[in-house]
Design a protein around this nucleic acid. Structure first.
Length: 192
DNA sequence: GATTGGATCGCCT
DNA sequence: GGCGATCCAATCG
């Protein structure tokens, strides 16, 4: 399988978020390979976006959003879960795409074991869930998609008619900005 | 130095 | 539909 080139990620974040749908996210972890098709994303635009962690400048948490696109940004949320993002846009603009749901395609038994669930819809249908199923942790924060165990491979490209654009989930600031994208009628997205 | 609130999930009613 | 779990960066709410 071919990897998406770094130029794919060095574009404005809504484009990257929308076009990531249909491509494949893999984690080659020590206890096995897991992978899935990206079916739901959200764009976080950087300094102009009040909902983005980089809105208030460089902090220890979001420092890896600053710099090159095509790297991993993982943070802890609600004290419990992790959220997995891919950095985007130019090095001057600290922005990222949150991966909200995957359609599992590889290492499903390992995902079931990590999630302690055996229904396909319970494995990767939400940012916290897919972080568990894929075993994404803080230690992955900042790694490149081109030199480490986490990779994005070329998949299919959806037509605009097959993509739903709507508002982001779970935020209070800029709540009405239409920056969430998902595959229309897909049964494994995180929520309507 | 203390407080607050969050890009969530799963179980309860 | 509501709420508890449980961490920590940002803010002084």
């Amino acid at each position: 399988m071919n990897q998406l080139p770094i130029a794919f990620f060095e574009r404005t974040t809504p484009i990257v978020a929308k076009e990531l749908l249909g491509h494949y996210l893999y984690h080659h972890s020590p206890d096995g390979i897991t992978g899935g098709k990206i079916i739901e994303t959200e764009a976080y635009l950087g300094p102009t976006d009040p909902a983005c962690h980089s809105f208030n400048g460089l902090t220890p948490r979001c420092k890896n959003m600053f710099g090159m696109a095509g790297r991993v940004y993982v943070y802890r949320i609600y004290g419990i879960h992790h959220c997995f993002n891919i950095t985007s846009d130019s090095p001057e603009i600290p922005a990222a795409v949150l991966i909200r749901a995957l359609e599992p395609v590889e290492g499903i038994p390992l995902m079931e074991k990590r999630r302690k669930r055996d229904q396909l819809k319970d494995l990767c249908s939400g940012p916290g869930k897919l972080a568990i199923a894929m075993d994404f942790q803080r230690k992955h924060d900042g790694i490149s998609l081109f030199t480490g165990p986490v990779r994005v491979y070329q998949g299919e490209t959806y037509a605009d008619n097959d993509i739903v654009t709507t508002t982001r989930v779970g935020i209070s600031k800029a709540a009405d900005w239409p920056l969430r994208y998902y595959v229309k009628d897909h049964p494994l997205i995180s929520k309507k």
